[in-house]
Amino acid sequence: MAESVLTARRSRARRRPRAPRRARAAWVGYLPYLLPGAVAFAVVIGYPLLTNVYFSLFKWRGGMAPLRWNGLGNYADLMGDDQFWTSFGNSVAMIVAMVLVPTLVGLLLAAVLFDYLGRRFGERVSSVLRATYYLPQILPVAVAGVLWNWILNSQTGALNEILRGMGMDSPPNWLGDPATALPSVMLVLIWIQIGYPVVIFMAALQRVDPELYEAAELDGAGWWHRFRAITVPQIRPETFVVTLTCTVAALKVFAPIYVLTRGGPESSTLVPSYYSYLNFFDKSHVGYGAAIATVLTLVIVAVAVIILGLQSRAERREREGI
């Protein structure tokens, strides 16, 4: 597309001798359109981000209290803070629940719906199933969390009522026991997340040339074989997008933790975002909270850069392969 713009400009240049100077400066004329965005970004994202880093260098109880210089002291404290390490350890669990499991299961479900059930029972069946899987994605995360909080409640919750009805005397306190809280939260997150990769992957599969499958079928390749040799490599770009967006979301996860467990019991479900919120607004350790948020930001940017790097390397290798 860039070439066609250039050639178009060149042809105009031939017609009118003054054009080259105008073409050179053409993009400058568009700068005013960037102005509102630039100002808004500087005010709402750039300035607060830098101010947050600035706050992280102080001990500050917030509000009118004085800021006391602490250098990198907050960061040094973080290194020795068990809760901080627990929170990032739990981020790994969030990645398992929001990226690993949904992407793998979603890939399988999408392939089954698209080229197995869709072909044998018609497109209606597969699109109804897809909509069903996607349903948890459309309700506000906080609302989903409140619903699950009640279902998993040890006293009045639906799950334990059912278990008691089946004769279990003391069913587990799902969200209240440090041993079961994290797995319970992970199951809720899988339930919320699963529809997203299914929808993306099914759309991606429509892009794949059906002749590839037909050729493989004629060669006698089974479904699993075709899944691995055609489906997975063909929709790799979408897999990268899903992995990137979901990993970032998993590192940022806040609302489900807030409504399900508030990081408890005994910090067993604490995550970095909730830990910084706690320091900001509950413990009034603003400098410390800012330091946690800054570390989280760095981790997210690093992870995003790594995933984007892997993606461009895979794309390059694919191009060279062809």
Partner: peptide, 23 residues
Amino acid sequence: IVTLFLLANMLPQEALIYPLFTM
């Protein structure tokens, strides 16, 4: 510019919230 926008979209809101709150 586009990369910057994309990164801005990924930022954790916790890293902006306290300054935004005071602003």
